[in-house]
């Protein structure tokens, strides 16, 4: 009986919870690609996908089936093991991070004390999938993409770290649920607005999205690190990238936009369940991700480095000191 009660049953519960998180997430990823094509279509006066199903709603399914039906090609000069592990790492990392995201009060798989460090660690590991793919493909284009990605991610992680420190100074805890609950009076986007902007731009760079999509750079290095990938291996990169976008939007929501909290705690607004608020805020962030992609041209590489090291790093460092100074001067430090 103890074996059942202590080991088997908790395992079943955890696996069921994981399924409950991962399945909707994969659905969200599929429909994010659809949303991106529709929104960018509307911004560019096109229709977007419209033939498969009503309003093209079945397009993601069709794409998925196509990906699975195709052949996985491994280049003869490639390092086989690393070549196949790289997309798995990318996809795996984009899913594991969701273990600590609180969707609503108490709706979290692992409510660990250092949740925010966990997220930061996982997002900083994302670079490995790309670098390994670039190296293992044994192709010049892929290699260039991998190198670009490595330098870019390391640069922008620094400012992301400082932004997280600023938020932590205002919260006094590394637990993500505490971070959300600390925003009950005012969302951090109001007092820390410049840091919100820094974080958003760094999130774009961290997920290799336009205007920082130099690792892919289809107009110069044809597709960067994924140039040699086909079928499911390619699909894993694609799913990983979009899951990472949703994850970054989730991080922005938790750190700056009050997570599952309604804007003001009054009657009609707080009847709506927290998960709906969370999803709505994440969707809003994702819309801005897509909007940015449809609006801005790609950065040149030296401009990207300049922005990361000469603008964001000193600026976020200054804001850390300023925030700490204000908190100490007015005795607002949380205990």
């Amino acid at each position: 009986m103890t074996l059942w009660a202590d080991i088997v049953w908790p395992t079943v519960v955890i696996v069921a919870t994981i399924m409950l998180i991962v399945m909707p997430l994969l659905g969200a990823v599929a429909y994010l690609t659809y949303a991106e094509r529709k929104i960018m279509g509307a911004m560019q006066l096109r229709q977007g996908p419209m033939t498969v199903g009503p309003f093209g709603l079945l397009q993601p399914m069709a794409d998925g089936v196509k990906m699975m039906a195709k052949e996985v090609i491994i280049p003869s000069g490639a390092n086989r093991v690393v070549f196949l592990i790289a997309p798995m790492i990318t996809f795996f990392l984009s899913l594991v991070a969701w273990a600590v995201i609180p969707f609503d009060e108490g709706w979290v798989l692992a409510d660990i004390n250092v949740g925010i460090l966990y997220l930061f660690a996982i997002s900083s590991l994302g670079v490995y999938g790309i670098v390994m793919a670039g190296w293992a493909s044994n192709s010049r284009y892929a290699f260039l993409g991998g190198l670009r990605s490595a330098a870019q991610m390391v640069s922008y992680e620094v400012s992301i770290g400082f932004v997280i420190i600023t938020v932590l100074l205002c919260v006094g805890s590394l637990n993500l649920s505490d971070v959300v609950l600390a925003q009950q009076t005012v969302w951090f986007v109001v007092p820390l607005f410049p840091m919100f902007v820094v974080f958003f731009v760094s999130a774009l760079a961290e997920t290799n999205r336009a205007p920082f999509d130099l690792p892919e750079g289809e107009s110069e290095i044809v597709g960067g690190f994924m140039v040699e990938y086909s079928a499911m291996t390619y699909a894993l990169f694609f799913l990983g990238e979009y899951a990472n976008m949703i994850l970054m939007s989730g991080m922005i929501t938790i750190l700056f936009l009050g997570g599952w909290l309604p804007p003001v705690d009054v009657a009609p607004l707080n009847w709506i369940p927290g998960i709906v608020w969370f999803a709505a805020k994440v969707a809003g962030c994702l819309f801005i991700f897509i909007w940015v992609r449809a609006t801005f041209p790609r950065y040149r590489y030296d401009q990207l480095m300049r922005l990361g090291w000469k603008v964001f790093l000193p600026f976020s460092l200054f804001w850390v000191v300023l925030t700490a100074g204000v908190l100490v001067a007015f005795d607002w430090l949380p205990d």
């Binding site: 660990i112 250092v114 930061f120 900083s124 590991l125 670098v131 190198l147 490595a150 390391v154 992680e157």
Partner: peptide, 25 residues
Amino acid sequence: EFLAFILVIVYVGAVAVLFLFVVMM
């Protein structure tokens, strides 16, 4: 757990990336 995540962030997330960067080239 704090030390564990600092180890991952600093060594795996930054130092080893630069290491790999150089060795790959």
